[in-house]
C-alpha cells in the first residue's frame, strides 16, 4: 500500500517539465527579480506617462529656461524651458519599445535565416553564412553608424540599421542549434512517417532550439537600448525635439555645467539597461546549470 503511494507520487514529480524548472529557478533569483521589477516600473511609467508627467514632453516655457531642479520642476528645465522630468517620463515610450523591437526583429529574422540555412544546407547555407561573417567582421556600432547615415537620420532608420547589424548573431546561433538537433532519432522518425519539410522544421526542430536563443535575446536587450540611445546621441536616431533619452543628453552636452539636463535622462538609460542586464544574467543562469552554482 505504502509502496504504491510512493510510485504514484514519483509519477507526479516526473511531469515537472524542464522549462518549468527554469522559470522556477528564475523566480527564485533575487537579482533577476530586481531586474524584472525595474523593467515593470518603466513599463508602467511608459503607459501612465500622461498621468505622471506634469507637463507635455514638447511644452515650452521660455521664461523658465535652464532652471535647476526645484519643487516646481523636479528635474529642472532645458534650453527651451521644457520640463526635464516630463521628458524623461515620456522618453520611456520610445526607448523601451524600440529596444525590444530591435531584439525581436533581429531574432525572428536571424532565426528564420539561420534555421533554413542549417536545415537545407548547400549553396544557400554557404552564401548566407559568408554574408553573416562579413557583417560580423565590423564592430556592430561602426556598421550601424554607416547604414544609419546612408539611410538618413530618423528613429526608424536607426532601428533598421540595428536590425541589419544584429541578425547574423542569431542566424549563426540558430544554424548551430538546428545542425545539432536535426540528427536526432525523432527527426529521422518524422521523416520516415512522411512529414513535410516545413512540418519537420517548424514542429520538430525549432521548438527544441529556443533555449539558447532566448538567453541571448534577454542578454542583448540592454545593449540594444544602449546602442539606440548612442545613435540618437550622435544625431542619427531620434531627432529633436523628440523626447528620447540619448537625444536629450546630446542637446545637454554643450551645457554640461547644467548637470540636470544630462544626468536624469542618463540615469533613466542606466536603470533600464541595468534592469535588462540583471534579468538577462538570471535567464542565463536558469538555462545553464554550470553557472548556477558559482
Amino acid at each position: 500500500m505504502a509502496q504504491s503511494d510512493n510510485i504514484a507520487s514519483l509519477k507526479i514529480q516526473k511531469s515537472d517539465a524542464p522549462w518549468k524548472r527554469r522559470v522556477k529557478s528564475l523566480l527564485r533569483n533575487p537579482m533577476a527579480m530586481f531586474g524584472v521589477g525595474i523593467i515593470i516600473f518603466w513599463i508602467l511609467v511608459a503607459f501612465l506617462a500622461p498621468v505622471i508627467a506634469p507637463k507635455g514632453p514638447l511644452e515650452q516655457n521660455i521664461g523658465d529656461r535652464m532652471q535647476p531642479p526645484s519643487s516646481q520642476y523636479w528635474f529642472g528645465t532645458d534650453e527651451l524651458g521644457r520640463d526635464v522630468f516630463s521628458r524623461v517620463v515620456y522618453g520611456a515610450r520610445i526607448s523601451l519599445p524600440i529596444g525590444l523591437i530591435v531584439i525581436v526583429f533581429a531574432m525572428i529574422f536571424g532565426c528564420f535565416i539561420g534555421a533554413t540555412a542549417g536545415y537545407f544546407g548547400g549553396v544557400y547555407d554557404l552564401l548566407i553564412m559568408r554574408l553573416a561573417d562579413i557583417t560580423m567582421s565590423f564592430p556592430s556600432i561602426v556598421l550601424a553608424l554607416a547604414i544609419a547615415a546612408v539611410l538618413g537620420p530618423s528613429l526608424t532608420n536607426a532601428l533598421i540599421a540595428m536590425i541589419l547589424v544584429w541578425w547574423p548573431e542569431y542566424a549563426r546561433l540558430m544554424r548551430g542549434q538546428v545542425l545539432s538537433v536535426r540528427n536526432n532519432e525523432y527527426v529521422a522518425a518524422a521523416v520516415l512517417l512522411g512529414a513535410s519539410q516545413s512540418r519537420i522544421l517548424f514542429r520538430h526542430i525549432l521548438p527544441n532550439t529556443f533555449g539558447p536563443i532566448l538567453v541571448k535575446a534577454s542578454l542583448d536587450a540592454g545593449s540594444a537600448i544602449l546602442n539606440i540611445a548612442a545613435l540618437s546621441f550622435i544625431g542619427l536616431g531620434a531627432v529633436p525635439p523628440t523626447a528620447e533619452w540619448g537625444a536629450m543628453i546630446s542637446t545637454g552636452r554643450y551645457k554640461f555645467y547644467n548637470w540636470w539636463m544630462t544626468t536624469f535622462p542618463g540615469l533613466a538609460i542606466l536603470s533600464v539597461v541595468l534592469g535588462f542586464n540583471f534579468f538577462g544574467d538570471g535567464v542565463r543562469d536558469a538555462f545553464d546549470p554550470r553557472t548556477n552554482k558559482s
Partner: peptide, 22 residues
C-alpha cells in the same frame, strides 16, 4: 562590472567632465 556594461559612455563621460573639470 554591471555598471560598466550598463552605463552609456557618452553620459558617464559628461558626468566626469562636470565633476573633475568644471
Amino acid at each position: 562590472a554591471l555598471l560598466g556594461a550598463s552605463m552609456p559612455p557618452f553620459w558617464s563621460g559628461l558626468l566626469m567632465l562636470f565633476l573633475f573639470y568644471y
